[in-house]
């Protein structure tokens, strides 16, 4: 494996991080993931944030794997 870090957005699921990384809280304290490859919560409903616990399935979280664009088109002026 190269020393490149890869973050993969899985459809309707978490962000999976592979490769070297350091996970921190906002004060710079390390959050130890305890494993090489981690899944970061993307639905906001995990009980072990920032890690994924599968809750996205219970809440039917939906998000594409690719970049999404839900910006509302500007309304034409009245």
């Amino acid at each position: 494996m190269s020393d490149e870090t890869r973050i993969t957005a899985y459809r309707d699921g978490p962000l999976v991080v592979r490769g070297p990384f350091r996970l921190e809280d906002q004060d710079g304290g390390e959050i130890d993931p305890g494993r090489e490859v981690v899944a970061l919560c993307r639905c906001g409903r995990s009980r072990i944030r920032p890690f994924c616990d599968g809750s996205h399935k219970l809440v039917r979280f939906s998000a594409p794997s690719t970049r999404e664009d839900r910006r509302i088109a500007a309304r034409p002026a009245d």
Binding site: T8, Y10, G13, P14, V16, G34, R35, V37, V38, A39, I48, F51, C52, D53, G54
Partner: peptide
């Protein structure tokens, strides 16, 4: 935690 990674 592990299987939330493994599933994907």
């Amino acid at each position: 935690e592990a299987d939330a990674v493994h599933e994907n």
